[in-house]
C-alpha cells in the first residue's frame, strides 16, 4: 500500500516536472511557432536568478517566485525584439538564431558565473510514508505546477489580453486590421513564455542544481512533450506530460531507468506515427 502511494506520488511528480519544463516552450513554440533552441538556457537563467539572489541574502521564495520569472521574462522580451522579431515565419533561420543564442548563453554563463557558483538548498523536510520517505518539495512541485497551468489557462481564456493574444496567433493580419498592436502582442507573449521557463528553472534549481550546461538536460524532453501535445497548446502539453510521465515512471519502477527512458521515446514515436499532428492535432486549432 505504501509502495502504491509513493509510486502514485512519483508518477504525479514526473507528469508535473514534464509539464513544468514544457509550458514555457508550449507558448513560444506551440502558440507562436517559434522554435526556441535556447529554451533549456532560459531554464538555466531562471535557476541562476534564484541561486544568485539567495546567495546575496534574498529570501528563497521571493527569488524563486518573483525575481526569476520577471528576470527571464524581461530577458525574453529583449531577445524577441533583437533576435526573434526579424525572423517570424522563417523556421530555419529561427532555429539557427536561437541555437546560437543557446551557445552564447552557455558561454557567457561559463565565463561570468563559472562552474563553482554555490547553489540553494532544498527547502522543507520530508514525510515518512510506510517504509518510504518522500520530500515535501515533491508535493510543492506538483501543486505549484497545477497552479501555473491553471493560471496560464485563466490568463489566456479569461483576460482581454489573453484573448487578443490567442486571436493574434491565429490570424495576425486580421488582428492588425482590428487595431491590435501585433508586434507588442508578440513581444509580450514571448516574454510570458520566457517568464514561465524562468519560473520552471527556478523551481527545479534547489533539487537539481544549476550549471551553465544544465539546459541540455531539459530541452529534448520539453520539445518531445510539446510536439507530441499538438496544436492545442495547453491541453496538448498536459496530455503529453501525463502520458509520457506515467509511462516512463511506471516502467522505471518495474524495470530500470534506462528502460523507462526507452519507453518514453518509444511511446512518443508510436504516438507521432499514429497522430502526426500530436495528441490534440485533430481537435480545433488555436484552442487551448
Amino acid at each position: 500500500m505504501d509502495f502504491a502511494t509513493v509510486v502514485f506520488i512519483q508518477v504525479m511528480y514526473a507528469v508535473a516536472t514534464l509539464a513544468l519544463i514544457s509550458v514555457g516552450l508550449a507558448i513560444i513554440f506551440g502558440m507562436m511557432r517559434v522554435i526556441n533552441f535556447a529554451h533549456g538556457e532560459f531554464l538555466m537563467l531562471g535557476g541562476y536568478a534564484v541561486v544568485l539572489p539567495v546567495q546575496a541574502g534574498v529570501n528563497l521564495w521571493v527569488a524563486m517566485l518573483i525575481i526569476a520569472p520577471i528576470t527571464v521574462g524581461l530577458f525574453g522580451v529583449i531577445i524577441e525584439r533583437l533576435i526573434i522579431r526579424p525572423l517570424y515565419g522563417r523556421i530555419v533561420e529561427t532555429v539557427l538564431a536561437t541555437w546560437g543564442l543557446s551557445l552564447l548563453m552557455i558561454g557567457l554563463a561559463s565565463a561570468w558565473i563559472g562552474f563553482y557558483q554555490a547553489g540553494a538548498a532544498p527547502p522543507f523536510g520530508s514525510v515518512q510514508i510506510g517504509s518510504y520517505r518522500e520530500g515535501l518539495y515533491t508535493f510543492f512541485v506538483i501543486g505549484v505546477t497545477a497552479l501555473i497551468l491553471a493560471g496560464v489557462y485563466g490568463f489566456l481564456r479569461h483576460t482581454r489580453f489573453g484573448l487578443i493574444a490567442l486571436g493574434t496567433m491565429q490570424n495576425p493580419a486580421m488582428a492588425a486590421a482590428l487595431g491590435v498592436n501585433v508586434s507588442r502582442v508578440y513581444a509580450v507573449t514571448f516574454g510570458l513564455g520566457a517568464a514561465l521557463s524562468g519560473l520552471a528553472g527556478a523551481i527545479l534549481a534547489p533539487i537539481s542544481g544549476v550549471l551553465p550546461v544544465i539546459g541540455i538536460t531539459y530541452i529534448a524532453k520539453a520539445f518531445i512533450t510539446v510536439i507530441s501535445g499538438g496544436a492545442t497548446v495547453l491541453a496538448g502539453t498536459i496530455a503529453a506530460s501525463a502520458l509520457f510521465g506515467t509511462v516512463s515512471q511506471l516502467v522505471t519502477y518495474l524495470s530500470t531507468v534506462i528502460i523507462g527512458e526507452v519507453a518514453l521515446l518509444a511511446v512518443a514515436i508510436v504516438l507521432l506515427r499514429l497522430l502526426p499532428e500530436g495528441i490534440t492535432g485533430r481537435f480545433s486549432r488555436g484552442g487551448l
Partner: peptide
C-alpha cells in the same frame, strides 16, 4: 551535471 541532481533530491527526501 544531470547525475549531480541526485544529491539534492536525496537530501529533499
Amino acid at each position: 551535471p544531470a547525475h549531480a541532481s541526485f544529491y539534492g533530491q536525496w537530501t529533499a527526501a
